[in-house]
């Protein structure tokens, strides 16, 4: 359940944003989740609900936006969709594709009032 500490980071990012750009409440959070980032959407959602209690994000809607994985083949250089790290290159069949997208986790946007 590392989602719990990741959800705590979301709250910290929100508090830092509130310090810069005064707002009382967060209504919605857009969180980009890389599909290779080892985050379970339901665990992330439950964790966010738990850690947002008694904060300005309590009751906010968490909108998870998936970022599909992409990888580059170390053997032939082909860039392809990567659903799992152990997938083979569709072009040459080689393994060990280097992820170039879909590993990140970022708060993209907030809806505040």
């Amino acid at each position: 359940m590392h989602e719990l500490s990741l959800a705590q980071s979301v709250i910290e990012i929100i508090e830092n944003a509130a310090a810069r750009d005064a707002f009382a409440r967060v209504r919605k959070v857009w969180l980009e989740v890389g599909l290779l980032s080892c985050v379970e959407p339901d665990a992330m959602r439950a964790s966010f609900e738990a850690v947002s209690r008694d904060t300005r994000a309590e009751g906010a809607v968490l909108e998870l936006v998936a970022v599909p994985g992409r990888g580059r083949c170390p053997s032939c250089g082909t860039l392809s969709a990567l659903a799992a790290r152990e997938d083979a290159c569709p072009s040459c069949g080689g393994y060990g594709l280097r992820p170039v997208a879909g590993t990140g986790l970022r708060v993209r946007e907030l809806e505040v009032e």
Partner: peptide, 25 residues
Amino acid sequence: HHHAQPGAHAHGATDPRRLRIEQDL
């Protein structure tokens, strides 16, 4: 997208103020 349940992210009536954050967790 991934929603808690259908309708969980229904848009509200008031005009939203949106902030771009772009910060890595």
